[in-house]
Each structure stands twice: as structure tokens, then as C-alpha cells.
């Protein structure tokens, strides 16, 4: 019951945040000089003022700013994100078409980086002077310092060009028609390199974090108690220590989720992954305001939902949070 109340409260906060994002995005886009009429004029090699005024009127760009904003909000509330002048398609359709590819990329990157990062961190913490520990230190240095696009290109050169294990880009092999299981395998095959590229930064981050917090926890009194109880090494490390060491990892996972979303834009571009990132780049080049706004809205939605989930997860892992909140209500 209390869990439900808190969840609803968090959802409300999330909605407020989304609204603020909408206002900010809308204003920012309108601060930038030029609109779709300018873009069309440029493509056509110049249009006379009359035609441009007609275009602006057709798309409602002649209205005062606040009226445009209200109209935009009204339609967003109905999940109508406007019409893309550039693609000649409703923005919502456009985004929903590309969203699954991006979600697949970011969620798989997040899951893989947490799993690999935590496992590496735990191994490193068990033997702070061992090989894995040094490996984690170097990995986190390199992984964190290397730009995503560089890592991506290096992986392409290594594993797609020199050793052709994986395809260079795209999400499916367009030369062959596949359905069902074969299609899934094909997508996964294409997913490996972009996912690894995106995950590389976060593996670095999580492994360093997990190593530090695990080292901390392994030296704690309750781990000594667990040992004094005669529990097996596995239970001491994975039950008593890891559960506590995961807390900072979960917090960070929520915080850096927005980083993963923005990293996905670069990765998608490098691997021509047909997701929201590629769409965003094209829309920005084409000054396609509704599409850009739509993408910004959806990515903030993804981040807000991810943070909400993190919050809930944290509450499940750490019992101390629950009571702190309930005593407040």
C-alpha cells in the first residue's frame, strides 16, 4: 500500500518533469534562428516571400509563440507529436518505428555493462592485487577516456574488417529475407558491436564502482559476522557482501541512464543503426522541429521511466529507504 502511494508520488513527479522538459525544448528550438520554411526555401534554391508566408501559415508558424506552445502541448497530451514536414509522416509514427531499435540497443548495453562490470568488480575486489584487479583499473581508465565513436570505429576495424566476425553496420542483413528465429539471430548478430561500443564506457564505470564498494563492504563488520557464522565463501560474497555493494551501482545506473541514451546517438551514427539517434541527426540537419522535439520528448520519457524504475529497485534492495519514506508520509 505504502509502496503504491510512493510509486504514484514518483509518477506524478516524473510527469511534472516531462512537462518542464517539453516547455524547455519548445522554447530552445524557437530560440534558434530559421524554421522549416527557410529549410524548404533552401532546398528549392530560393522561394519568394509570398510562398514562404503561405508555408508558415499552413504549418501554424505565424501564430504567437505561446499559442503555438499551447497547441503543441494539447496535441502531445493526445500523443500526437505533430507532423514531420521533412518525412511527410506523423512524428509519433516515425518515432515509434525507430524506438524499438534504440531501446534494444540501450537496454542491452545497460544490462551487459552492469553484469560484466559487477562481475569484474567483484573478482577484482576479492584479490585487490591480482591480475583482474589491475585489468579493471586499466580497463576503466581506457574505457572511460576513449570516445565512443573511436571505440566503435576500432571495433569495426578489428572485428568487422580485419577479422570479419560481425557486420559493419545496420540492424539486419537486407540482402536476405528472414523471418522468425532467423531474423532474431540476425538482429542479435548485428547488435553485438554497437552494444559493446556503447557498453564499453559503462563497463568501465560500473567495474570501478563495484570494485570500490565491494572492497569497502568486504572489510565491514557484518561480513566478518557472516564469516564467523560459518557461511560458505559464496554466501559471504554473493549474499551478504554483494547485496550491499550493489547499492551504489544501482544509484549510478539510474544516474547515467541519460548518458547511455545520448551515447546511443553517436553509436547509432557510427554503426548506421536505424534508431532514434540516426533519426535525430537527420532531423537536426533538416531543421525538422517537430521531429526533434518529439525525439527529445521520447528520450526524456525513457530517462524518466528508467529513473523511476531505479528508484523502485533501490527500495526493494535497501530496506532502510522504505521506512525513511514511510515515516515522512
Amino acid at each position: 500500500m505504502q509502496f503504491l502511494v510512493i510509486t504514484l508520488k514518483r509518477c506524478g513527479l516524473g510527469l511534472g518533469l516531462l512537462l518542464a522538459v517539453l516547455v524547455l525544448n519548445f522554447l530552445l528550438m524557437h530560440l534558434a534562428p530559421g524554421d522549416v520554411a527557410d529549410s524548404i526555401a533552401q532546398d528549392a534554391g530560393g522561394l519568394d516571400a509570398e510562398v514562404m508566408a503561405q508555408i508558415r501559415k499552413d504549418y501554424g508558424l505565424d501564430l504567437p509563440l505561446w499559442e503555438q506552445m499551447l497547441k503543441y502541448f494539447y496535441s502531445v497530451a493526445q500523443l500526437d507529436l505533430g507532423y514531420s514536414f521533412y518525412y511527410n509522416q506523423p512524428v509519433t509514427t516515425l518515432i515509434l518505428e525507430k524506438l524499438p531499435a534504440t531501446l534494444l540497443l540501450i537496454i542491452s548495453a545497460q544490462v551487459v555493462s552492469i553484469l560484466v562490470g559487477v562481475v569484474l568488480g567483484v573478482i577484482a575486489a576479492r584479490k585487490p592485487n591480482g591480475v583482474t584487479s589491475h585489468f579493471v583499473t586499466i580497463l576503466s581508465l581506457v574505457g572511460y577516456a576513449a570516445p565512443v565513436f573511436w571505440t566503435g570505429i576500432m571495433l569495426i576495424i578489428l572485428f568487422a574488417s580485419m577479422i570479419p566476425l560481425f557486420p559493419i553496420g545496420n540492424m539486419v542483413d537486407v540482402s536476405v529475407e528472414r523471418t522468425g528465429f532467423a531474423y532474431m539471430v540476425d538482429v542479435l548478430h548485428h547488435l553485438v558491436l554497437p552494444m559493446l561500443t556503447l557498453a564499453s564506457i559503462f563497463i568501465a564505470l560500473y567495474s570501478r564502482l563495484a570494485r570500490a564498494s565491494m572492497l569497502d563492504v568486504l572489510g565491514s563488520d557484518y561480513v566478518r559476522t557472516a564469516q564467523a557464522k560459518g557461511l560458505s565463501e559464496f554466501q559471504v560474497v554473493f549474499k551478504h557482501a554483494l547485496r550491499n555493494a550493489l547499492l551504489p551501482v544501482v544509484t549510478t545506473a539510474g544516474l547515467v541512464f541519460s548518458g547511455i541514451v545520448s551515447g546511443a546517438v553517436l553509436v547509432e551514427t557510427v554503426f548506421s543503426w536505424p534508431g532514434l539517434g540516426t533519426l535525430a541527426v537527420q532531423a537536426i540537419v533538416a531543421r525538422d522541429t517537430p521531429t526533434i522535439l518529439g525525439i527529445l520528448f521520447f528520450s526524456s520519457l525513457v530517462v524518466v521511466v528508467a529513473n523511476l524504475l531505479t528508484d523502485m529497485l533501490y527500495r526493494i534492495i535497501d530496506p532502510r529507504i522504505k521506512t525513511a519514506e514511510t515515516s515522512e508520509i
Binding site: D221, Y222, R224, A226, R243, N244, D318, P319, R320
Partner: peptide, 23 residues
């Protein structure tokens, strides 16, 4: 491991930190 906690067990100095906070 079979002896610890079964034949010989121990109570520590710091009750505030000797119990695992998440169980």
C-alpha cells in the same frame, strides 16, 4: 566453516555494524 557458528561462535563489539543492514 562447520566449526564456526556451530561449535564456536562469536559476538562482536559493534552491534550497530555487525548485523547486515539488508536482511
Amino acid at each position: 566453516r562447520a566449526v564456526r557458528g556451530n561449535d564456536i561462535s562469536m559476538v562482536f563489539q559493534e552491534p550497530m555494524t555487525s548485523l547486515n543492514p539488508v536482511f
